[in-house]
Amino acid sequence: MRLTVNGTEHVLDLDPRTTLLDALREHLGLTGAKKGCDHGQCGACTVLLDGRRVNSCLLLAIAHQDSHVTTIEGLDGHPVQRGFLEHDGFQCGYCTPGQICSAVGMLDEVDRGWPSAAADDDPLSDAEIRERMSGNLCRCGAYPHMVPAIRQAAGR
């Protein structure tokens, strides 16, 4: 089985039941993507699959051998990461890599003109950012510090 992660192709011998998340965490030593629920319900495992944000816990690794996976380890000093540092956009940090990957994917979606349920005129208003980021739970409740971090990364 092949997996291309952060630009590197890996050859692995994995049980076909292995999810992308478990492949990253248990087999490639890339533990930046977190497991919060293992069922698509929290967003902690968010990575970018061919540039799109996805929950890696619900993807079978075997089905994504031709894709390019980007994890938090592959985002090197991204403006979203800097924003999180400047605005204290986290507490325990467990949801953080997922939040950051999600924000990176989300900003790209905004660039492409994708709508959201917030349906604001400004696709990067606070209400829009909140709605678009709602697939990432933060039990510490660091949300109010993430919104300005993401806004800043978007150049606002």
Partner: peptide
């Protein structure tokens, strides 16, 4: 609207 009201950005991408 119905699609956007469902699930999350990550899930809808897949």
């Amino acid at each position: 609207e119905a699609l956007l009201a469902g699930a999350s950005g990550q899930l809808r991408n897949v």
